[in-house]
Simulated assay, not measured.
Amino acid sequence: MPGKHSLHDIEQAEKKPLWQRLGWLALIWAGSVGVLFIAASLMRMFMNAAGLTTH
């Protein structure tokens, strides 16, 4: 079935060093935080341009 991983694939992924797996986790987390920051900044910029301010 497509989308299902075999036991061999899972075993191969578990053989990778811990630092490499944690590195990928940190990279994905940092990327998601960065994208969220960009989206929030764009929304704030558009809201300020439309005259919506907090002061």
Rank of each mutant, 00 (worst) to 15 (best):
E14P: 00
I38Q: 02
R21L: 11
S41H: 12
I10H: 05
A49N: 15
F46N: 15
G51W: 09
S41F: 14
A30M: 03
L22C: 01
M43A: 13
K4A: 11
K4D: 09
P17H: 11
H5N: 09
S6V: 10
K16L: 14
W24E: 07
A30R: 03
G3A: 07
L18G: 01
V33S: 05
E11Q: 12
T53Q: 12
P17M: 07
G31W: 03
M47T: 11
H8S: 04
K16M: 13
G23I: 03
A30I: 01
F46Q: 15
H5Q: 12
A39K: 13
V35C: 00
W19G: 05
E11N: 08
L52G: 04
A13L: 13
V35A: 03
Q20L: 12
A40S: 06
E11W: 04
F46H: 15
M1F: 07
V35S: 02
L52I: 15
Q20V: 06
S32E: 03
A39I: 14
T53C: 06
G31Q: 01
G23S: 04
K4P: 00
P17I: 05
E14S: 08
G23M: 01
M45C: 01
P2C: 04
M47E: 14
M1T: 03
Q20E: 13
A26V: 14
I28N: 11
Q12N: 08
G31C: 01
W19N: 09
L7N: 05
E14H: 08
R21N: 04
G51L: 09
I28T: 13
T53G: 07
Q12D: 09
S41I: 08
E11I: 06
K4N: 09
A50Y: 02
F46I: 14
V35F: 00
I10C: 03
K15L: 02
L42N: 06
L27T: 00
K16V: 10
R21Q: 12
A40I: 03
I10K: 01
S32K: 00
W29M: 06
V33G: 02
H8Y: 05
Q12P: 01
E11H: 05
K4M: 11
A26S: 14
L7V: 10
G23W: 07
K15V: 02
K16E: 12
